[in-house]
């Protein structure tokens, strides 16, 4: 129960931060991504501020096996820099550059009652579902290849 409450609180705080930072305004995000035009460097400060606080927290987190609520510390263990990582990130960057919206701000736009935000989130969920389908097919194929020989 406490985990769900803290999760909600973290989401709320994260969302308020996105709004204050200007990340929930797609036009501003595109202004940051437009290096060759009139460049608005604000969002570099968002990343800087977030990491400034994050560094200490994650240094602490790495030393623990349990969270303050007693839950297992689940930090990513995958260190592979492979084609999936690169291709996925490049695709994400194209989508981000086309609309100026990434997943967090998309959900904030939904909460702001923005119809275009709802549309974007539906499309994003479709993309994520597509990934699940492709993954399952890929794993089934890999499994079939293993069992046939």
């Amino acid at each position: 129960m406490m985990a769900v409450l803290f999760s909600w609180l973290a989401g709320l705080l994260f969302g308020v931060g996105l709004i204050l930072a200007g990340m929930a305004n797609p036009a501003k995000v595109l202004g940051f991504l437009d290096l060759a035009g009139a460049w608005d460097p604000s969002l570099a400060l968002v990343m800087g501020g977030a990491i400034a606080l994050g560094l200490g927290a994650f240094t602490l987190a790495k030393r623990r096996t349990r969270s303050l609520l007693g839950l297992p510390m689940q930090l990513p263990s995958n260190r592979k820099i492979d084609r999936r990582l690169m291709l996925g990130s490049v695709l994400f960057g194209i989508g981000w550059g086309l609309a100026g919206i990434c997943p967090g701000p998309a959900l904030v736009l939904v909460g702001a009652g923005e119809g275009k935000g709802v549309l974007f989130v539906l499309a994003m969920l479709f993309g994520m579902a597509l990934f699940e389908v492709l993954e399952r097919r890929h794993q089934a194929k890999a499994h079939a290849a293993r069992t046939s020989c």
């Binding site: 994400f92 609309a99 736009l109 549309l119 994520m128």
Partner: peptide, 30 residues
């Protein structure tokens, strides 16, 4: 704060699908 979404409906759909698919393959976003 004021916000503005310039992307058209079609562009938003394409962008959304790319963001969904890309972030899951790349295992993360911003």
């Amino acid at each position: 704060p004021a916000r503005r979404i310039d992307a058209s409906i079609t562009l938003l759909i394409v962008a959304g699908v790319l963001v969904g698919l890309g972030t899951r393959y790349g295992a993360g976003c911003t």
